[in-house]
Design a protein around this nucleic acid. Structure first.
Length: 835
RNA sequence: GCCGGAGUGGAGGAACGGCAGACUCGAUUGAUUCAAAAUCAAUUGCCCGAAAGGGCGUGUGGGUUCGAAUCCCACCUCCGGCACCA
């Protein structure tokens, strides 16, 4: 007997799909798509092409493909495209090391990805393939940049930025992990530079409100985004330094503690420090302190358990609520990036202020009293609970704290000394990079006209060819003199190009829109086409993008919608975040030497086995440890199904015909048992898909079905009604495994049913076969299982109790005791409570 | 510190108020084979027992319930995110 040959089978079906362009879908109103089917946009996060695909890619695309197949067979027109996020640092660092052009390295990697995706049999509409490094694509990235620029959402500003000394580039806040560069691990430094920003903070509230428009996002992703945005409500209160005539607004979430402010602290970067200490006694000491703070790395400054340091400025400000003069300090525990870079310090009710007050021997004045009157020793009282009342707070003394917050804000507003305010942790998105391998920022600087956007009809601003990729504190593009020197689009005078490129997150913030209309040369997408396909119905990707990519893409979509370019407010209504694949319990990495690549397994077992295994390992949203034995087990199962298909094709004559489907209920014995199992599996797999893609249990159900067929088949082959049942059950197993193992599913289904499984509707479970005439009645005594009894499905309660009491095993436990209660769960269980 | 998530056999996991351990791996045994691989069949939570059967079992302690892995409270451990954010 021949054996399961995945390579031959997979090649064969891949050729069919390739030559018939099975997975391509047309846009409405163009080439004959009538729009009769509802649409479904199934999208996996696009890969960053570096080297070859890894297990995380396999998992992501296996999950997405299963969903795409499931939806197609439910009558949806499924858009399932693929592309490459091709700009970025790894290709450029490789270029610096080897001299190989980043384009060459990237494109050869894309070739590997493309080939493997085909070998995996992922059902992709290849006619829509895109890559972010092509001028055809980044032309529109630049075009969107210009639209944001026009709306004031892209701006240039000098700002303290996080600088990676090794990569010699600026990093976004999001790319700094524990004070270190996300890519190379070097401690990040603070520098002041002119940089480009996107004004994402304008959208902070809408990014929060947008959560309500989503259907299904993992709770932890929403929480992470919410925390990242970090919205705090409170008040802005103005403290004045009358001596010098400077106003210092501060942000506080606790205006109820204003009477407890006993000193005032500025961040070392605060722009007014110079003026405050000029020619004063403290000048030297303050300058030393500020310089040292600036030199220290972000990591050092944020170190835990760091004692509070600072220097008195020798100046005071006035507390607006009580007119007190309170001393000013500079300290590095105040951050310039949050709030106003200045704080009112309330040591009695803020732990940091408390520590500072202790270190500098400053007064600590309690102004809020807990309901029980207990205040912690050696710490600030920071609770914020019901029943708190104000003390030592002038006219507000005795007022409940929650009410005091409102009243004090109202008072401040009346007096013109403050107002209700909201502050965010979120900062504007720093998008410029002093690197080569990215989309050039389409701006020129003209001596006469200043900053001038490149006109749309001159896009794309193509990336020039250069010799030296290594950044030296400025963009490598600055070395391309011929390219930098240009003409001002405005006045025709001499001008110089912006030499920074865009963060790659910009490229990936809109790619899902370009898939919709990838060959459009007049605009990034046709609005009507976008209206048809958007939003993405199901997005799939790793949790590592839970904050950055998803938030940036949401911001883009909202901004584009505001410009009238899109009709949706949220790009991804459903998100599935897959867990990470590990090996021997650890993240796979070259340095650990525990990397296994999908390609190794296709050699040995074929794509179907690897894909099915990765979906079977455990719930897909959780991580999983890759096990060679595990793949083998799944491979055994698929082989078993294939052999079954061969045997059934030979030993049964008929294809399951439609008329047989009407006769199921007259079936009896094993034939009915088998068919019932098939319908149980249909029901189970379908429910598991709907219940958050519980693929592990769905695949287990198909395994159970196959096991049942093996158990019963030999007794049914000779039988006039049994044979077709075996055939039908086996074809059903093939049909149900198809979303995970598409080649094998197609092969076995074709062999048994003579049809293309992807063209047949998803099977429906027959309710008549899901229920049976008898049930297994579980009998408990005092909640403990004592017996199982076969009973009629519709037996009345009294009958069930009679059966339960009649059981010999049950009797033994009732002996000499009194039954005080009988609990009956119809169709399931009887519990006898005895004493 | 704050915010999430999770603790179940030798392993991955299933069940998510009603039969704990589906399915898979691993292990053991048998059939087949000259032999091995592959395949097929059987056993496999722990303890007592020859068996029938019984007892104990879902991180720990308590609670709710006729009944709890599942719900509630407290605690322990692990994983992830954020963290001097005023």
């Amino acid at each position: 007997m021949s054996s399961y040959d995945p390579h031959a089978i997979e090649r064969r079906w891949q050729q069919v799909w390739e030559s018939e362009r099975t997975w391509e879908v047309a846009n409405p109103g163009r080439h004959g798509f009538e729009g009769s089917k509802p649409k479904s946009y199934v999208l996996e996060m696009l890969p960053y092409p570096s080297g070859e695909p890894h297990m995380g890619h396999l998992k992501c695309y296996s999950i997405g493909d299963a969903i795409a197949h499931f939806r197609r067979r439910h009558g949806f027109e499924v858009l399932h495209p693929m592309g490459y996020d091709a700009f970025g640092l790894p290709a450029e660092n490789n270029a610096i090391k080897t001299g190989e052009h980043p384009r060459a390295a990237t494109e050869s990697s894309i070739e590997v990805f493309r080939r493997q995706f085909r070998q995996w049999g992922i059902s992709i509409d290849w006619s829509r393939e895109i890559s972010s490094h092509t001028p055809e694509y980044y032309r529109w990235t630049q075009w969107i940049f210009l639209r944001l620029f026009e709306k004031g959402l892209a701006y240039r500003a000098e700002a303290p930025v996080q600088w990676c000394p090794v990569d010699a580039t600026v990093l976004a806040n999001e790319q700094v992990i524990d004070g270190r560069c996300e890519r190379c691990g070097t401690p990040v430094e603070s520098r002041k530079l002119e940089q480009w920003f996107f004004r994402i903070t304008d959208y902070a509230d809408r990014l929060l409100e947008g959560f309500d428009m989503l259907e299904s996002w993992p709770e932890h992703v929403l929480t992470m985004q919410r925390n990242w945005i970090g919205r705090s409500e409170g008040a802005e209160v103005v403290f004045s330094c009358e001596q010098l005539g400077i106003d210092f607004p501060v942000f506080t979430t606790r205006p109820d503690t204003l009477f407890g402010a006993t000193f005032f602290v500025l961040a070392p970067e605060h722009p007014e420090i110079e003026r405050l200490v000029a020619a004063a006694d403290a000048e030297e000491a303050v300058r030393d302190y500020v310089n040292q703070a600036m030199r220290e790395s972000t990591e050092e400054r944020a170190a835990e358990e760091r004692p509070k340091t600072g220097v008195a400025l020798g100046r005071t400000v006035t507390n607006p609520v009580n007119g007190e003069q309170i001393p000013m300090f500079v300290s590095d525990y105040v951050l310039m990036e949050y709030g106003t870079g200045a704080i009112m310090a309330v040591p009695a009710h803020d732990q940091r202020d408390y520590e500072f007050a202790k270190a500098f021997d400053l007064p600590i004045r309690q102004v809020v009293e807990p309901p029980a009157g207990e205040v912690p020793e050696d710490a600030a009282y920071v609770e914020h609970t019901e029943g708190e009342r104000l003390v030592n707070s002038g006219p507000f003394t005795g007022m409940p704290a929650t009410e005091a917050i409102r009243e004090i804000i109202a008072w401040l507003e009346r007096e013109g000394k403050g107002k209700a305010a909201v502050s965010y942790r979120l900062r504007d998105w720093l998008v410029s990079r002093q690197r080569y391998w990215g989309a050039p920022i389409p701006i020129v600087y003209c001596e006469a006209c200043g900053m001038v956007p490149v006109p749309d009809d001159q896009l794309p601003v193509e990336l020039p060819e250069i010799e030296e990729y290594a950044p030296k504190g400025r963009s490598p593009l600055a070395g391309a003199e011929d390219w930098v020197a240009t003409e001002c689009p405005n006045c025709g005078g001499s001008a110089r190009r912006e030499t920074d490129t865009m963060d790659t997150f910009v490229d990936s913030s809109w790619y899902f829109l370009r898939y919709l209309d990838p060959r459009n040369e007049d605009e990034p997408w046709d609005r009507a086409v976008a209206d048809h396909w958007m939003p993405v119905d199901q997005y799939i990707g790793g949790v590592e993008h839970a904050i950055l990519h998803l938030m940036y893409a949401r911001f883009f979509v909202k901004a584009l919608a505001d410009m009238g370019l899109l009709g949706v407010q949220e790009p991804f209504v459903n998100l599935f975040a897959q867990g990470m694949i590990t090996r021997d319990g650890a993240k796979m990495s070259k340095s650990k030497g525990n990397v296994v690549s999908p390609a190794d397994y296709f050699e040995r077992y074929g794509a179907d086995s690897a894909r099915t295994y990765i979906c079977f390992m455990g719930p897909p949203e959780k991580g999983g440890d890759w096990s060679d034995e595990g793949v083998e087990g799944v491979h055994r199962f698929l082989s078993r199904l294939w052999r079954l298909g061969e045997e059934v094709a030979e030993r049964t004559e008929d294809r399951p015909r439609n008329e047989e489907r009407g006769t199921r209920n007259e079936l009896s014995g094993h034939a009915r048992t088998l068919l019932a199992k098939a319908h149980w599996a249909i029901d189970k797999v379908t429910r598991d898909f709907r219940r958050g893609f519980q693929f592990n249990t769905a695949i287990a159900a198909v395994m159970e079905l196959v096991n049942e067929i093996y158990r019963l088949k030999d007794g049914l082959y000779g039988d006039a009604e049994g044979g077709p049942c075996v055939r039908l059950a086996t074809a059903t197993a093939a049909s149900l495994i198809f979303p995970f193992a598409p080649h094998l599913g197609a092969e076995v289904y074709d062999r048994l049913a003579g049809e293309r499984v992807w063209e047949t509707p998803w099977p429906e479970a027959d309710p008549a076969l899901l229920s049976s005439e008898t049930i297994t009645l579980v009998v408990q005594v005092n909640g403990k299982l004592r017996d199982r009894i076969e009973a009629e499905v519709d037996a009345p309660e009294e009958e069930l109790i009679r059966l339960a009491r009649g059981s010999e095993k049950v009797q033994r436990h009732l002996d000499g005791k009194e039954v005080v209660k009988e609990v009956v769960v119809p169709g399931k269980l009887v519990n006898l409570v005895v004493r």
